[in-house]
Each structure stands twice: as C-alpha cells, then as structure tokens.
C-alpha cells in the first residue's frame, strides 16, 4: 500500500472510530424522543384537546431550557420534575433537536 493511501486509510479509521464513540446508535435521538410520546404524542404531536403540550416544532433551546428548569425544580410541575431527572444533558440535547426538527 502506498503511504498516501495508508495515511488516508488510517485517517478514515480514526474518523469512523470517533464517530462511533460519539453516536453509538444513529437512532439514539429518535429512540429517546419516543419515550415522551405516551404523553406528548407520536413525534411530539399531542392529541389536540387532550391537555398535553405538543413538543413537535418547539425551538430546541427553549425545550432544553424548560427541561432543565423541571430538573432543577424551579418550574412548577406535577410529574415533569421527576421525569426530567432521569435524562442526562446529552440526552435532552438529542431529544430537543429531534422535536425541533418535527414540523
């Protein structure tokens, strides 16, 4: 193998390696967001009139902020403060990005 090819191959290996470490499953965001659907609707589209907030199309930063406020306890809640404590910062970033992309 020519050195240039070898370097390219090594670089590719490093790349895929780090990509794999960052996103162990390309569907992680989708899967995590689906855990919210029981109350907030499939893909965040809540049943109209059900009294549950739709999350689809919510601005990502806003969703992350509200979620963090539930976690810290400063946002009043019946259940979200307890649910929010079960998700890490990275997980809520992924979930918020997924819902923001649902138009």
């Amino acid at each position: 193998m020519k050195p240039a090819h070898l370097i390219a191959a090594l670089a590719l290996a490093a790349l895929t390696g780090s990509a794999a470490a960052q996103a162990p499953d390309p569907h992680l965001a989708r899967n995590l967001a689906a855990t919210c659907a029981n109350c907030h609707g499939t893909n965040g589209r809540a049943v109209p009139g059900s009294g549950m907030e739709a999350l689809a199309g919510t601005d990502k930063a806003k969703l992350v902020e509200k979620f963090r406020e539930y976690r810290s306890g400063i946002r009043p809640a019946t259940v979200m403060h307890q649910i929010a404590k079960g998700y890490s910062d990275e997980q809520i970033e992924l979930i918020a990005a997924y819902f923001a992309a649902q138009k």
């Binding site: 659907a37 029981n38 109350c39 907030h40 609707g41 499939t42 809540a46 049943v47 059900s50 009294g51 549950m52 019946t78 259940v79």
Partner: peptide, 17 residues
C-alpha cells in the same frame, strides 16, 4: 384534580400513539 385531567390526557395520547 390536575392529575385527574392529566390521566385522561395521558390515555388519549398513548391510545393514539
């Protein structure tokens, strides 16, 4: 009572889901 309403809202959303 808020959770009485939430329980019914939960049911509607999980049935739809």
């Amino acid at each position: 009572e808020l959770e009485g309403k939430a329980a019914l809202g939960w049911a509607q959303n999980i049935w739809a889901d």
